[in-house]
Design a protein around this nucleic acid. Structure first.
Lengths: 153, 153
DNA sequence: CTTTTAGTTCCTAATTTTGAGAACCAAAAT
DNA sequence: ATTTTGGTTCTCAAAATTAGGAACTAAAAG
């Protein structure tokens, strides 16, 4: 498989974007490749080869991405290779996962306020405000998702 | 200034949370400290001392946090020290900043689809779906924010 | 003008992250 | 039973991140 310059550039751009949100470089490139590749299902060796990375880097990145729920593989009977692909159709779950994590932070904020002096009234108020909005988001985002599904039709 | 064990634990927890979203350790701890500290405005040296980090680490982390718009400092006339504090009241801007960044990604996705083969119809459809939802989010989140402001009253 | 204060920058060391290469392993093919 | 395939794991080195300490700077104080 060979890629155009434009494709390579897109892969890098997506890779860097992923890195910024805490993903390791190789994993980001794999994500990018799977977004861009004309074949959306690639084997271990195709990935390794086209990105020019080692087996270990490939293996580690792939298993991390699977744990993060971004990737899965399928197999075809009579073929031992795994075909890796993005779990694109599950992006709704990922959105919800993200919301959960900020909701965790909201709970931490409540703990913080519980531990704070009551002297700093305005400050505490601000903290609770943030926490409350995060909780609101948690509650409203699913609705937003269904509203979007509706208007899409 | 001395902190309780609970406070220290909260600082670490917040620190780790921040690290996960790509922040450097010292910066995460400083954020944590400012959330937790009874005094919400701390000087350079107070921060350095209570966290037990060097001047350079403190200086670098503080300036990074200021660039990320998480922090600011104020001064008092007749006092040369800077008093650093969280830009807590500006959290709405931060939310919007986050939305902007996912909107950037949405545009990248459009470029990706433009570059893709038209063979993989369903795949391309999925990509556009994600891109479209991100754009929808960009449009709706401000409204959600004002709706929240309303119901708060 | 000299000293002190508050913070920054430079240089370097320690730690962490990342990934290559080889050895390894299990399942399938021969 | 042996070999091949597809992938994992281990060890180690390279590269990047992080932070300590000393030197430095600008402004204020004396």
């Amino acid at each position: 498989m060979n890629l155009t310059d434009k494709q390579r550039a897109l892969i890098e751009r997506i890779g860097v974007f992923m890195e910024k949100s805490g993903m390791q470089p190789a994993a980001g490139r794999i994500m990018g490749l799977l977004y861009v590749s004309d074949k959306p299902e690639l084997t271990f060796d195709e990935i390794r080869e086209v990105l020019g990375i080692s087996k270990s880097a490939t293996s580690n990145a792939l298993s991390m991405l699977q744990h993060l729920n971004r990737l899965e593989y399928i197999t075809y009977s009579g073929d031992r290779k795994r075909y890796f692909r993005l779990k694109l159709d599950k992006w709704r779950d990922l959105v919800m996962q993200g919301v959960e994590s900020i909701t965790d932070f909201s709970e931490t904020l409540h703990e913080v306020v519980a531990e704070r002096t009551s002297e700093t009234k305005e400050y505490n108020q601000n903290l609770l405000e943030v926490a409350d909005f995060l909780k609101y988001l948690h509650q409203e985002l699913p609705k937003l998702l269904t509203a979007w599904e509706q208007q899409k039709k």
